[in-house]
């Protein structure tokens, strides 16, 4: 896929007050135009990782190299022009729009900030064009977010993120709060927009069926660490990590399939340095004594397929 657009190296995010390491030594790369899926349960650190990449949460250590520039070395004022290249779409479309701003104003705002030279009539034209592009009427500009359904609000969220043509779009569970019947519409819209603008995408989700549909490559994150990553079909057809297998097995299907039930429950995120050995071992059916000794590092399992499990070769 050529030179990566984004290269994250050894990224750590800590929440000091709770002494929690939410993201732990993560390496991740995204090529231009590529869609990278990021999957894991609640509390696995996937949203925190995304927010760290967008420079919305403080980073404890590591590098975020975007278009050759380490974003962590930039001062807030130097960072500002970079922000237009990384945009986010959130899970709750209504909560992420200002309820007191018309949709038109909400869409004009990024243009005012990042394209201050743009004349107001051009700006309004760009907004109308964008609204029609995401499947809404141009008249929607004069209405308020609460007048729209969840699916329509998510269309507005996508329009707002795409209007300044970012190089990287981060979608954090963009369809999880929508009806199953509407999810497909929004995912198809995202894919169409991506095809038109060649933007790269990080797609976070816990519905693996949808992540499989949109992604070129997929990273699996567990308690702040990447435990497996591979090209999409390779990961879903030949998952190596027991956690990935459990995630895939838990997808509800018709006809129903046998489900591997994890006996343990999700504990709160681990404290810094408090974890020894593989973080998944207390839920893992294949855990053996060596798993408690040291956290396994990511190792190649096949072409482009990396897995952090001591027993990946034998299970």
């Amino acid at each position: 896929m050529g030179e990566p657009l984004l290269q994250v190296q050894n990224l750590c995010v800590e929440f000091q007050r709770h002494a929690i390491r939410a993201v732990d030594q993560v390496d991740l790369s995204v090529a231009a135009g590529e869609t990278v899926g990021l999957v894991g349960e609640s509390g696995s650190g996937k949203s925190t990782l995304a927010r760290a990449i967008a420079r919305l949460v403080p980073v404890a250590a590591g590098r975020i190299v975007f278009q050759g520039q380490d974003l962590l070395r930039l001062s807030p004022s130097q960072l500002r022009p970079w922000r237009r290249h990384v945009q986010l779409v959130f899970q709750d479309p209504l909560a992420s729009l200002n309820p007191r701003m018309t949709v038109g104003d909400a869409l004009q705002e990024p243009l005012k900030i990042f394209r201050p030279d743009m004349p107001p009539n051009e700006r309004r034209a760009a907004v109308s064009l964008m609204l029609t592009r995401v499947g809404l009427q141009a008249g929607a500009a004069h209405r308020y977010p609460r007048e729209f359904s969840g699916g329509q609000c998510q269309r507005i969220g996508i329009a707002r993120a795409m209007i300044i043509k970012p190089a990287l779009l981060i979608c954090d569970e963009p369809v999880s709060s929508l009806d199953v019947s509407i999810q497909g519409q929004i995912v198809n819209l995202l894919l169409d927009m991506q095809r038109e603008t060649h933007a790269a995408m990080i797609f976070i989700g816990h519905n693996l069926g949808i992540v499989r549909h949109v992604s070129h490559r997929v990273y699996v994150i567990y308690r702040g660490r990447i435990v497996e990553h591979a090209p999409c079909e390779e990961l879903f057809l030949r998952p190596r990590h027991p956690y990935t297998r459990a995630l895939i097995a838990s997808i509800p299907q018709i006809p129903p399939v046998a489900v591997a039930v994890e006996p343990a429950v999700i504990e709160t995120p681990h404290r810094t340095g408090g974890i020894r050995g593989c973080a998944f071992r207390d839920r893992c059916p294949h855990a053996r004594e060596p798993c408690a000794a040291a956290a396994p590092a990511l190792a190649p399992a096949a072409a482009g397929h990396w897995v952090a499990c001591l027993r990946a070769g034998e299970i």
Partner: peptide
Amino acid sequence: GLLACVPRWSQARASRLPSIAGQP
């Protein structure tokens, strides 16, 4: 339409995700 929206694991990846057009 609702049934078609359930991703089938056995099926190969389609180019479009099924959905029901329009709004209730």
